[in-house]
Amino acid sequence: MIVDSAAAFDVRDYLRQEMMPHFLCPGCGHGIALRALLWAIHEQGIDKDTLAVVSGIGCAGRLSAYIDANTFHVTHGRPLAYATGLALARPDLHVVVITGDGDCLAIGGNHLIHACRRNLKLTCLMLNNEVYGMTGGQVSPTTSESRLTSTTPHGNAEPRFDACALAAAAGASFVGREGTRHVPKLKELIRSGLVHPGFAFVEVLSDCTEIFGRKNELGSSPEMMLRQKSELRPSAYRDTVDTPFRSNDLPTGILTKTERPEYGAAYRKAAAAQRASMAKASAAKSAAAPAKGTP
């Protein structure tokens, strides 16, 4: 039952309370996603001092400022690249990336696919609200077709990215998706990502109620959240008989989980081997040197 774990977790222990209330709009799903992340961190027993959160630009990017940890709010689209440097240089840190759909898939798309390929231990939380909220509601790579945004006044004509399919195709060893409606499930998904020994990509379906919701007449925050539930079903139900009657192009849960060598560990292992063989060679050289000089 959820009660036990939730009772032990007070989100305020992980927030910079002097920064509260946060700047997000009323009903914004990002706050819920932040809770799920912090809950997972709490359950996993990750020390705030060794937790590093790197975030990009946009509404999602601002979340790091509220987390009582080592937080880095970097440039637009680049949090994965910053995190790659940080995690490679400091394997003792637990590095989490918070990014938005535009940050991660548009301006930062190249970094995402290469992070997936490289498989460095990082947890990437992509908060997908289908829109550039902070800049006033422009179309994003995940905006559904026909949706109205401030740059698609007649409805979006571009197909959207399936971020999870993209990450999986790029070789991510852990891919999962969940909505903010299901907080315990979302927390579990993130927790699985945190413990995954490699690059973990978690897409969180979040609601932009004030801008995207309003523009598309999706109703109040609670209504958007309830619709989110009706549109999502666990991936396990994908092949059941009722599939033809309900669209299910956004399966949830853990979608990919494979074992691949973690990049940082593999690099350090190869480097250690290089040092060992060098030490051996120089030892052999110094042993051989006097013998050479005797005659």
Partner: peptide, 8 residues
């Protein structure tokens, strides 16, 4: 508590 986006 879980669904409050504002931790209120």
């Amino acid at each position: 508590e879980l669904l409050c986006p504002d931790f209120a």
